[in-house]
Design a protein around this nucleic acid. Structure first.
Lengths: 179, 179
DNA sequence: GACTTTTATGTCGATAACGACATAAAATGG
DNA sequence: CCATTTTATGTCGTTATCGACATAAAAGTC
């Protein structure tokens, strides 16, 4: 059996929270909200949507204004499946496919200049990511009311920020020690 | 084009550091040292080893004691390719395929009991992982000399510990707030 | 020394992933 | 209003992944 299927459940979650969403908008979610936790391209999403309609997890209607746009809605069956999935315990930690650590691991000489280069690049990437995350936090949660209304979303965004900031601080510490 | 190929480079790194390693031992590395940063099963590794021998990245010899065991060595070509790969900049952060965050994200009600259940499970997993990592740190780096000899390895292990501890602290904080 | 279990390697089938390519409707622009 | 560009959806080919199955040598057992 191949890897466990996750994508259809994520799509269920997206459609459940935003009825009448289009395929294009679902794809866009993976570049913004969901993007920090999962990636998917439109060439995965469109065939998946088709399968999910076939399986009666979703229904679809065509836009009256735009003949090629399709709106998706979750069915009762789909909602059941989503609820069951959300309630199922997560039984393993995510595997970090971390090229940075991997390359560091293979460079045995502590004075190899490539170490400092790797750290510099990684620091830049993390800094960029942190800026982006903080920007989003300001945009999505401008006040306490917004936090209360989407508390879970707030939690995971705060967690991502905390994690990224932690890694940055740690990298800085290492970089300073190498000087 | 499908996803970028990483596995052969990891294998190059492993064989480079441990000449005369067997396929079984390479597989074992993914359950211990490398396991925190990459996963691969033997059914990926053996065909890959074959390809790499065909491509002259590795050479292989058969054990005199055990007819079915094969020893692998990196070739000059393989070493060049490995060095080039190690020097190449990592241009993107790892995507965290994080089911925990994903499920949280889809549960909008802050009082949904599944939130606390998710947090409890995640805490247990992280705690288990942290214990394991600290155990490894004690085993692999019993003294400063060991740290100096494999400084990079020490770095990434320390980083994993720091990250895991950070996430745990953060989860505990959230859990306390929900009470 | 025949039998069973374990070890090390190898193979296969189903499907996930993803970039490249394709298409037709809608929007744009002169 | 015709030509061009953009948008939204869809398709395809190649490769990655991984559990299940297979096999033959080695080790263990009585």
């Amino acid at each position: 059996m191949p890897k466990r299927r996750i994508l259809p459940f994520i799509i269920l979650g997206i459609v459940s929270n935003r009825p009448q969403i289009t395929g294009r908008e679902i794809t866009a979610e993976f570049s913004t909200e969901i993007g920090d936790f999962w990636k998917a391209s439109h060439s995965q999403i469109y065939p998946e949507l088709r399968r999910m309609v076939d399986d009666q997890w979703l229904t679809t209607t065509t836009s009256p204004q735009n003949a090629k746009e399709k709106y998706y809605l979750i069915t009762a069956t789909g909602q059941e499946i989503l609820d069951e999935w959300l309630g199922r315990a997560v039984d393993e930690l995510p595997i970090h496919q971390d090229l940075f650590s991997l390359k560091l691991f293979f460079i045995k000489d502590p004075f190899d200049p490539r170490i400092r280069q790797l750290i510099a690049t990684q620091t830049a990437l993390l800094q960029q990511s942190l800026t982006h995350l903080r920007q989003r936090q300001r945009t999505v949660f401008p006040d306490d009311q917004a936090i209360t209304r989407h508390y879970s979303h707030y939690l995971i965004l705060a967690r991502a920020i905390s994690r990224t900031a932690g890694q940055l601080a740690w990298l800085k510490n290492v970089g300073d020690n190498l000087k």
